[in-house]
C-alpha cells in the first residue's frame, strides 16, 4: 500500500477571495510580512500496491476527471515520503 498526495490550486488567473480573506486576517493578527495568500486543497489517496508509474498515471487521470476542475484549477501529485 502507498499514499499519493494530490495538491489542487486555483489557476493563477482565477480570483481567490478566500486567499484574500486569509491575507487580511493575517495582517490583522500582526503578520504584516505576508504579502499574498492562495488557498488550495490537498488530497491523500491510499492505493493498493506501490506508487509506480502506472499507479501515478491512474491518480493523474482521477485528478483530471474528479479532484480538480481543469477549467479553473491546476494540480500536482507525488508519492508520500
Amino acid at each position: 500500500m502507498a499514499t499519493v498526495i494530490v495538491d489542487v490550486m486555483l489557476k493563477p488567473e482565477i480570483h481567490d477571495p478566500q486567499g484574500e480573506a486569509v491575507l487580511g486576517a493575517s495582517h490583522r493578527l500582526g503578520f504584516g510580512n505576508v504579502t499574498a495568500v492562495r488557498q488550495g486543497k490537498r488530497f491523500e489517496l491510499e492505493i493498493d500496491g506501490p506508487a509506480d508509474g502506472a499507479a501515478l498515471a491512474a491518480v493523474e487521470e482521477l485528478a483530471r476527471e474528479l479532484l480538480a476542475n481543469p477549467v479553473i484549477e491546476e494540480f500536482s501529485l507525488h508519492p508520500a515520503d
Binding site: L10, I14, H15, P17, Q18, A21, N69, V71, I72
Partner: peptide, 17 residues
C-alpha cells in the same frame, strides 16, 4: 451542467466572499 461539460466554464466563489 458546467461540471458535466454540457456547458463551458465554471462557477467560482463570489468576489466579495
Amino acid at each position: 451542467l458546467c461540471e458535466a461539460h454540457l456547458l463551458p466554464g465554471a462557477l467560482t466563489r463570489n468576489a466579495g466572499l
